[in-house]
Design a binder for these strands. Sequence first.
DNA 1: TTGAAAGCGCTAACAC
DNA 2: GTGTTAGCGCTTTCAA
Lengths: 357, 357
Amino acid sequence: MSQLLLFAQTLSQPLKEEWRDAVQLKDLAKQLNVSVSTVSRTVNGTGRVGAKTRERILDAIKQTGYQPNEVARSLKRRSARTLGVVVADLSNSFYSKVIKGVEKVASENSYNVFVCNTDEEVGKEEEYIRVLLQNQVSGLVIATVGSDVRLFQPYIDSGIPFVFIDNLPSLEDRFNLVAIDNDKASRSITQHLVDQGHRKIAMMTGPLNQSTSSERLLGFRKCLEENGITPEERWIGVGTFKQEYGYRMMREWLLNEDRPTAVLAANDFLMYGAIKAIYERGLKIPEDIAVACFDANDETGLISPGITAIIQPAYEIGSIAAEIIMRREHDKGRKQYEKIELEPVLLLKQSSMGNKG
Amino acid sequence: MSQLLLFAQTLSQPLKEEWRDAVQLKDLAKQLNVSVSTVSRTVNGTGRVGAKTRERILDAIKQTGYQPNEVARSLKRRSARTLGVVVADLSNSFYSKVIKGVEKVASENSYNVFVCNTDEEVGKEEEYIRVLLQNQVSGLVIATVGSDVRLFQPYIDSGIPFVFIDNLPSLEDRFNLVAIDNDKASRSITQHLVDQGHRKIAMMTGPLNQSTSSERLLGFRKCLEENGITPEERWIGVGTFKQEYGYRMMREWLLNEDRPTAVLAANDFLMYGAIKAIYERGLKIPEDIAVACFDANDETGLISPGITAIIQPAYEIGSIAAEIIMRREHDKGRKQYEKIELEPVLLLKQSSMGNKG
DNA sequence: TTGAAAGCGCTAACAC
DNA sequence: GTGTTAGCGCTTTCAA
């Protein structure tokens, strides 16, 4: 009986503590009677190593399943081969596509990706950027919700590439950017509403310290003016990018007899909220009110009515952002900033169609 | 002129190389004429430090903006305060909620989260797990798509907690699990279809090596048999979890005169594909065909028809998984495994309602 | 071609 | 209380 017990114990925990630590360079070195540096060289393929020594080492690596400790490497290298991505909301398909884009380029270059979700909170955003920098990321892709970039200016200046997407930082010129021209995009979608015969057009958007908000609002205003329409201030809602605000704002507009015949929202969540309010009021889209927004991607094919929207090339934004960082990795030290503008698509669907003469 | 140039240069690149490196412990130590260990102690709040020394140090930290190098800490500690999360698809709202759940618990404990996206590819999954382990993560949360866990058995045995969610690994007993009872959930949603009067019920699911697939299929079969219905093999589709497969399979079923009156899909993407096929065929939901699936979350409120579905508590799955890891961190070495079963919700919507007597 | 040794930035004994 | 020092696991001169 006691033998059996012993046996079982032996099976489940072979040598206790000894086994807990993964095999490392010096183990291989000792085992093969070579120096750690030789092993290191063959692992990395740097420097010359005798043919048969290399053989033996490669063999042992396979046998033992040796895996280099990336943390030690990063410390030595003083840079983790890692990209940080900071987004406002992971469940937002725009961001998840951006991330996939970053991911693709990163993995092509054997980099890893650290993804952080800020829930649109500036505090969290700053915290995460700090943490990522402390972790020696090679570069950052940030959809900022307005953190004070000056906090990180030392890092930016020290050459760690920051690539902003979506929102511009409220700051100087020393950063990279990948985004669409929000002003222009907003003008084009507003123009579409005007072309449908609307003149009483409302717009809802997020906080104005985010450039996506302010630029989209600006484009909206410009377009109306170009068409000889004076924007009604009461029909301009500035709040958050969340569904709930879209709902509240729309409800308020609908309380009044004199209501807009079309609504533009600066993102899809706002629009979903707005639509809820419209339906609650018993109104029809687009007959009573036409709607359009930014970023309404319908993955399901079942969203009804289909929503007219500006669609950003999210995946490309992510991959290009990552490529910028990779380029900076190669010509390190050269302080150079890229601003890349991508072309969005205006997708026309039922929600805005049907002339309003 | 030459003065001006000099001035400009001075502004943009102060001391060249000197500035590139962030301030570190020894800098503070030198500057304050104390030892690095004293500074380290006050940074970490470990060990006693004289009141005024501490003051001075804290001051200097604020002045210089010193941030500890996490990579060095991790190396020393032999563990990065980081959780790895491996999911099949970031754009899937189920997973993004899981991630948010993990994230919450992690950040409460000052841990970071590494998110990896496998695109449902086993190769990528194995690669990412390897990379995460090389990066000394404290634990892993994995929605496996079938990688060979034996590859990582040494790590599991060495005490790094693996928490599986969603899918079970095709292996032994030595792992943690947080999931719903898929068999039971599947039975309950199938029963609902039966209760609506359906007897010709089809089911489509993903690869059977994923337990979510096989268990859901099993539950489906059991339920039919319990109700005295013999499952029709031609109406059981085993393929992938992607929309395209749902579409193809459904189309095939609809080619035949004798078609199912209800369809269950093992996830929402399959269902969206199926619905597309149903509409293309000019059929109505639920009048001609009732549908139901797993995980159909409608964030927009606009998906029409509303889809009857089993909703998993995704956020909780993520947070509980992370909590398990945190617990293991505290009682390190103790090899103990937790299997936690959460209760899903059956959400009834139009897509399956209306008796079929 | 190979090895010895000096760190990367930090923590934690262990002395004083 | 505070300082000295020995690593954490790896890479990379520099000699041999």
